[in-house]
Write a protein that binds this DNA or RNA. Structure first.
Lengths: 142, 142
DNA sequence: TCTACATCCTCTAGCTGCTGGAGGTTCAAG
DNA sequence: CTTGAACCTCCAGCAGCTAGAGGATGTAGA
C-alpha cells in the first residue's frame, strides 16, 4: 500500500495532480487509512503511469479517458484506440507545420536586426506591418 | 472614429477580446461616445494590429507588453526587442523538437497496430509500458 | 508515552488567453 | 418613433494543473 506521496514520486506526478485526476474521475477513488489518508495499490500505480505516459505524448485528458476505457475492455476493437492515436498524430503534425512557419518568420526577424535603437528595429517593424511577412501564420493558439 | 465592432472586423479579433486586452492594460482606455460606447482612432487600430500579429507569432501577452513598451520608446535599444524575439524563437524550436519526438513515437504506435482487439493493441501496450518507447519525451505540456 | 515534524487532508483561488451568455442600453436607418 | 443590430457591464467557464491556508494524521526518536 502506497501513500499518495510515494505514488507521486514513483510516477513523477505532483500530489495535487493525483487528487485532481481523482476529482475529475480519471482515477478511481482509492482506499483510505483509518485516519482518512489515501492508500494506493499497484493497479492504481499502473493506471496513473498510463495516464502520465499518455499525457507526455500529448493526449488530452478526454482522449485518455477513452483510452483507459478501451484498455479496461480487452474485447473491444483495437481500431478505436488506433483512431485516437491517429487523431493525436495529426494534431502533432499540424502543430509542427505551424511552428515551422513561425520559426521561419522569427529567424528572419532576428537575422535582419541590425542592432541600432528601436526606432528602426526590424523586429518591431515586422510586428507593426504584417505585409512584411513571407509565411502564413494566420491562426492564433495551439 | 471606429466602433469596437469595426475594429474587431478590421483586425480579425473578437469584440470580447478587445475589451479583455483593455482590461488587462494591453490597450489604453479609448474615448467614449455620448452614450458611453467605445470609439477608436487609427492609433488604436495600429496598436491592436501589432498585438494580434505578435500573438500570431506566438508571443505571450507579457512579451507583447514589453514589445509595445519598446515600440513606444524609439530611443531605447533595439537589443531588448531582439532578445525577446530570440527567446521566442528558442521556445518555438524547443517545442518543435519535442513535437518531433512525439510524432516519431505516435507514428510507430500507429504503424505497428495490427487491428485485432484491444487485448493486444499496440497503442495501448505502449502507453502501459514506457520502456517500449524509443524517444525521449519527458516533459509534459506545450 | 511524548513530542516533533513530515506528510496528509479539504477547500478555495489562481494561472493563460480568451470565449460565451445574461440582462440591459445605445445608435442609426427607415 | 420604432425596430433591430450592436453596444454596455458583469460573471462564469474552458484545459490542466498549481499553490496556499488551516488543520489532522502518521511515524520515528528520546
Amino acid at each position: 500500500m502506497l501513500t499518495i506521496g510515494t505514488l507521486a514520486k514513483k510516477t513523477g506526478t505532483k500530489v495535487q495532480t493525483i487528487r485532481y485526476y481523482e476529482q475529475i474521475g480519471l482515477l478511481p477513488e482509492p482506499g483510505r487509512s483509518a485516519g482518512g489518508q489515501r492508500r494506493y495499490s499497484n493497479s492504481e500505480l499502473d493506471r496513473l503511469s498510463f495516464v502520465r505516459h499518455a499525457r507526455q505524448l500529448g493526449f488530452s485528458l478526454d482522449a485518455i479517458r477513452e483510452l483507459l476505457d478501451l484498455s479496461d475492455h480487452p474485447d473491444k476493437s483495437c481500431a478505436d484506440a488506433d483512431a485516437i492515436a491517429r487523431r493525436q498524430l495529426k494534431q502533432v503534425e499540424q502543430r509542427m507545420a505551424r511552428l515551422e512557419a513561425l520559426r521561419t518568420e522569427l529567424q528572419r526577424m532576428v537575422r535582419e536586426c541590425s542592432g541600432g535603437d528601436t526606432a528602426d528595429c526590424r523586429v518591431l517593424e515586422v510586428l507593426r506591418d504584417h505585409s512584411e511577412c513571407l509565411t502564413d501564420h494566420e491562426e492564433i493558439g495551439a
